[in-house]
Design a protein around this nucleic acid. Structure first.
Lengths: 172, 172
DNA sequence: GTTAGGCTACTCGGATAGCCACTGTCCGAGTAAAGTGGG
DNA sequence: CCCACTTTACTCGGACAGTGGCTATCCGAGTAGCCTAAC
């Protein structure tokens, strides 16, 4: 069993996007540069997140990505399911019905006990992931940070952060 | 994320082996025929189970496989780890240390919070799998069976079960 | 008739190709912004 | 000077190759059982 590397990238990106001030945007190229990964490949996962209504995209020049929901409404499970797909890891092939002299299908109306046990375990896994939100992660990082990580983030944002509009509603 | 099909085959095989009476053996070919899968491919996973001391092999003609431990000492986690490998599904690539102007490594002595959260979830998954033993599964199957499944199993064993020795110690 | 030896056939074990999904990349559709010309 | 249009350049979106691991397979090492032949 192996999770794709895109999951880690997606979680890091969402965490960064959640730390943006106001209506800030960040382009896929900036996110890729910050994490040292391929831009084109990261785009694929950002599209998945966009399709799952986790992030929202702003097209055109000066465009980019921002969160579609507040960070406390985004769980790790949402991101994992968006990137890896909603299908469970264990797919019962019903091999109990195969082989010589198979029993009639009506004997297998109840789900396979092995499948049920594996799905229970996966449900526990998902519940654990569902209980962790992006805001929780940010709080943990902030608690363990002496200021250096935040400072590096601010320095990066000072160069790459962009606003969708001059925002005339806010007075000088 | 996707588990290999070999996991399901391995669990079914171990369950069947746990149901054998006495010192009965079953060859890989018989197990493959019973489940309707490829013999050569099933052998690979049986070798994994043998290497993990879950099943024990009897070489030579009239050889086969039998359990290496009583069924209540074998959990689903043992089988999954034997077949899929002990590595966790989530591998932290430490992309937080990458990108421009990385911080010195001493800032990252503590594990990544994202990695920690994913590993917590996987630990929950493993704990759930560890709590289910082969004897539990057999009991569940027996409880839901009206006798047909057991009868089919006995019919198959009558043809394919083999004893390693005539066992002269047991009087007639 | 008994027994030692050799042979055979069957089993598992590891090494070898094939295929699919993940990884990585590219080019095209769409759009906000800037530049430009006219009014 | 102000405005509308054109152009531009930049963004994301979906379609296209490359690679690693799972899937499927084959042949070789090893051994229990059987047959043979000598004693």
């Amino acid at each position: 069993m192996k999770l794709g590397d895109g999951v880690e990238q997606a979680i890091h990106c969402v965490t960064v996007l959640a730390s943006l001030p106001g209506d800030g945007l960040l382009s896929a190229a900036s996110l890729a540069e910050l994490h040292g990964v391929s831009t084109s490949y990261l785009l694929k996962h950002l599209q998945m997140l966009s399709g799952a209504d986790i992030v929202r995209t702003v097209p055109g020049p000066r465009g980019g990505y921002r969160l579609a929901r507040p960070p406390e409404k985004i769980s790790l499970l949402d991101i994992v399911l968006a990137v890896e797909g909603p299908e469970p890891a264990f797919r019962c092939k019903e091999i109990r019905q195969r082989g010589p002299d198979p029993l009639p299908p009506e004997y297998f109306s109840a789900p396979c006990q092995i499948n049920a046990a594996m799905l229970r375990a996966e449900r526990a896994w998902r519940n654990e992931l569902r209980s962790v939100t992006i805001s929780d992660l940010i709080a943990e990082v902030a608690a363990a940070d002496d200021g250096a990580i935040a400072a590096r983030g601010c320095a990066f944002l000072a160069t790459h952060l962009r606003q969708p509009k001059p925002d005339p509603s806010s007075k000088t």
